[in-house]
Amino acid sequence: MAKADTETRQFPYLPDSDVVAVQRGPEPGGIKGAYRVFGETLRGLKTTMARMIEGPVTIQYPEEKTAVYPRFRGRHKLHRFEDTGLEKCVGCSLCAAACPADCIRVVAAENDPANRVSAGERYAAVYEINLSRCIFCGYCEVACPFDAITMGHDYEMADYNRGDLIFTKEMLLAEPIERTPLRVEGE
């Protein structure tokens, strides 16, 4: 029944003008097939050889780093105010709430007025990101109302122990040892 149904069915949903039938291409075998075995193989080799003048598209990776675009989301960074040196993070835990992978742990504490850590009333006593769980979606950056956490540009984060992939506040605040090269917009 299903067969008769589809055979009699017209296709009102797609007029013929919207459809283009693809070409069937040559049939294999025969004299033309014998030609293709040699002729077309040589022509294919010509295509391959012609790529030589284009030069390589690969880079010598460990020596030469891949440049990333400004929007690239790499390892997180915590920020300080440039003038006062106080941490921007006030320990509101909004990043931890936004994280789909639940990889951020924030424990907030009250600021001591004599020895302030952050600009707000509270600061993050513990700020840990488990980079082995992080999926680099950047929701923490979107969620942070104070621009305290941003996604940096570093992408070399491999390590030998899982424990070393839990980044503490000091590690996230520190400047990276080696800067990742940045592509200019439009390049």
Binding site: A2, K3, P26, E27, G29, E40, T47
Partner: peptide
């Protein structure tokens, strides 16, 4: 062009694995 005129590719793909439209539906 690399594939459509390649004799091996033609032999490997043509008229193989046909499933009727009704069955696919």
């Amino acid at each position: 062009a690399l594939l459509t005129n390649n004799e091996i590719f033609l032999h490997r793909t043509k008229d193989i694995g046909i499933v009727p439209r009704e069955r696919l539906l």
